[in-house]
Simulated scan of single mutants.
Amino acid sequence: MQVWTVSNQKGGVGKTTTVITLAGLLVKRGYRVLVVDVDPQASLGYYLGVDPDELPGSLFDLFHHHEQLDSDKVESVIVPTGVAQLDLLPATTALATLDRTLGTQGGMGLILKRVLSMVSHRYDAVLVDCPPVLGVLMINALAACDRLIVPVQTEFLALKGLDRMVRTLDMVGRSRGTQYPYLIVPTMFDKRTRASLQALTSLTQKYPKQLWHSVIPVDTRFRDASQAHLPPSHFNPSSRGVLAYDQLLDALLEPQGAGHV
């Protein structure tokens, strides 16, 4: 089972779109996929038509009762989606309280990794959607992942968010005595605008080894797919955005070390 975490310390850069599009494409290739929402805003659940307030359990319950974790408890909060072979481990707004209530306890950074190990027999791939804030949730998502994907909107302010994310990875890596290899994915690229072209040039110059060789273009079909509660790959598989993500997936499925990951 491969675990890919999608993270950036800026909102609105395409994290949730990246998670759900890659998940849908993996399903189409025959993978059993779990998407995990660790963002208290629960955007991933809402995208898939799941209202977290109507669910009997969520990721928050697993964190809150982490000392009594077992596979039955984990499986009890995983919900099916409207797409076969695609399941969701949902978030709730209560996740926002974890840093205050549990953040000082030892071992809190490895709970998600334990959770996923208990269902590893059920899935071929897991994609984790992160909040844009450094805290116990992001630390868990980093600790659990095999690969880190950093979407970056091709505009000036998003580049500043990327710089913060890279500093965070360096800081967390030093504290844990490990490195977090990451793949930067330029998103919402519009070749007609100077801002997009300048941002892409800046990314190429500053992060040549970590930058994916292509871009995810602006595509209004992403918005339409979210309104239909479907992965873009299932809503409009031939859209230019989906085709770009399909190329990204090819790079991610290369053996570890290829594709700058």
Rank of each mutant, 00 (worst) to 15 (best):
Q179F: 12
D87P: 05
D124I: 02
D37G: 07
V79A: 06
G57T: 06
D61Y: 08
V115C: 05
L44A: 12
L203K: 04
G12V: 07
K191G: 10
G107P: 11
L148F: 08
S117H: 10
R223M: 14
A42F: 09
Q41M: 07
L59W: 09
N236Q: 08
D219R: 10
I78S: 11
R223N: 13
M108V: 15
L112S: 02
A23V: 02
V136R: 01
P186Y: 05
R223K: 13
T193F: 11
T154P: 06
S120Q: 12
N8Q: 14
E155K: 11
S202Y: 11
S226G: 03
L200G: 02
V6G: 12
R29A: 06
L44I: 03
S120V: 09
L162M: 01
P186E: 02
S239I: 08
D99N: 15
D170W: 09
K206F: 00
Y47M: 08
S214L: 12
D246I: 04
R32L: 01
Y46T: 15
G135R: 12
A94S: 12
K10P: 08
M118T: 13
K191A: 07
Q2D: 13
V33K: 04
M108Q: 11
G107M: 08
G45R: 09
R147E: 10
P217N: 09
L116F: 03
D87Y: 13
V152G: 01
G177H: 09
I20E: 04
V35G: 00
E54P: 01
T97D: 14
T81Y: 08
L211G: 01
M1Y: 03
L211K: 09
G57L: 09
Y31N: 05
I111M: 01
Q85R: 15
A84V: 06
L48F: 14
F156H: 04
K10E: 10
H64V: 09
P90I: 03
P80C: 11
M1F: 07
G49F: 10
V36H: 04
L127R: 00
L59N: 10
G107W: 04
C145T: 15
G109L: 03
Q9K: 06
E155V: 07
L25M: 03
H66C: 07
L69C: 08
R164P: 00
F60G: 00
Q9C: 02
R194N: 04
L26D: 00
T93V: 15
H213I: 09
M108D: 00
L137I: 04
T93K: 13
L134G: 02
H260A: 13
N140V: 05
